[in-house]
């Protein structure tokens, strides 16, 4: 509506006149848009090699069609179910533990009466967000190695683990490592958005509840939580849209040959097949499958959230 009114006021001058008046900005906008066409849309077009037997000499257009062969190969691959299991289990474990963690942290921070302490906790917990997964993986190798780091000797002293436990090369620990490192790196940062939502709650609601005799628990349960539901739902929608992509940076950098059985996910499979082995057409097909499922999940989750809480990401 606002748009319509403004254009009515400007009266939509003739195209030629508008062009002359705005040519420098128009030129900039065209260049920017061409950048997006080249780096955003050209690869989308290029992904038709998923349906071809790609040959460098023949190029994207000249390569012969392969129909759905590459997709079929992926679905029939003996590793398909393992890859799907790993991808979904890691994502769902993150959804169960890493998703609520920042909400809980935000609620806990909000209960602090000392603003200085609150600030300290926030300042420190943001830090890991700004370092790369390369560093986090390095820290893991350093700290979780039984010979280099203090963690395993400490836990062994308490009698919890074997003193020679190599946690990062043991397949059965990988999902846990993925979830814990994800929480460690992002919990403080992800709490920001929830804290902002909590701060935005109308304070008179709390005043009224206090007068009615509601304790802290009651206030959190009946006021704070319901008020941040829209924020939670938007974040949840985005998380569901990402269920099929289990954070490539993290998984790739923590992955090693010993833990492939639990650490091979769709994205790492694409990387190995495409970049390492040069099977461009097959890897593109796998990637395309992932992209389509992700978009479908996002659209589905968004339409549910729109219907349930009237929150939409677009």
């Amino acid at each position: 509506m606002a748009d319509l009114k403004v254009s009515a006021r400007i009266g939509r001058a003739p195209l030629g006149k508008r062009f002359r008046a705005q040519r420098s900005l128009f030129f900039i906008a065209v260049v920017g848009t061409l950048w997006f066409v080249l780096f955003g849309y050209y690869p989308m077009w290029g992904s038709i090699i998923a349906f071809k037997n790609f040959d460098f000499a023949l190029g994207i257009i000249g390569s012969p069609w392969a129909g759905l062969d590459h997709f079929r190969e992926f679905f029939r691959d003996s590793d398909f179910w393992i890859i799907m299991r790993n991808t979904l289990c890691i994502s769902l474990l993150k959804l169960a533990f890493a998703f609520p963690a920042p909400i809980i942290l935000a609620l806990l921070l909000n209960e602090l009466t000392s603003t200085g302490y609150k600030k300290l906790v926030q300042t420190v917990t943001y830090l890991p967000h700004f370092v790369s997964w390369v560093i986090v993986a390095g820290l893991c190798y350093q700290l979780l190695s039984p010979s280099l780091g203090p963690v395993i000797p400490f836990l062994a002293k308490l009698g919890l683990v074997d003193p020679n436990l190599l946690i990062l090369v043991e397949p059965r620990y990988f999902w846990g490592v993925a979830v814990v490192t994800d929480i460690w790196k992002e919990v403080g940062w992800n709490a920001v958005i929830y804290l902002a939502a909590i701060t935005a709650v109308d304070p008179t609601l709390f005043e009224a509840a206090k007068i009615d005799g509601a304790g802290r628990w009651r206030q959190v349960w009946s006021i704070t939580l319901p008020c941040i539901v829209p924020t939670v739902v938007v974040m949840l929608t985005l998380t569901i849209g990402n269920l099929f992509q289990a954070n490539f940076d993290q998984i790739w950098l923590l992955r090693n040959d010993a833990i492939v059985p639990t650490a091979e996910v769709i994205d790492t499979h694409v990387f190995v097949q495409g970049i390492r082995l040069g099977r461009y057409d097959y890897a593109t097909a796998v990637g395309l499958f992932k992209s389509f499922v992700s978009v479908a999940l996002l659209v589905g989750a968004n339409s549910v959230s729109r219907r349930l809480v009237r929150a939409s990401i677009w």
């Binding site: 593109t284 395309l288 992932k290």
Partner: peptide, 22 residues
């Protein structure tokens, strides 16, 4: 048109292999 074009790239991408080839 331009805003729509830009926004769409937030939700869908061609994947790493076509990007690499580009």
């Amino acid at each position: 048109f331009m805003i729509g074009l830009v926004t769409f790239t937030m939700y869908f991408s061609g994947g790493i292999i076509p990007y690499f080839l580009l």
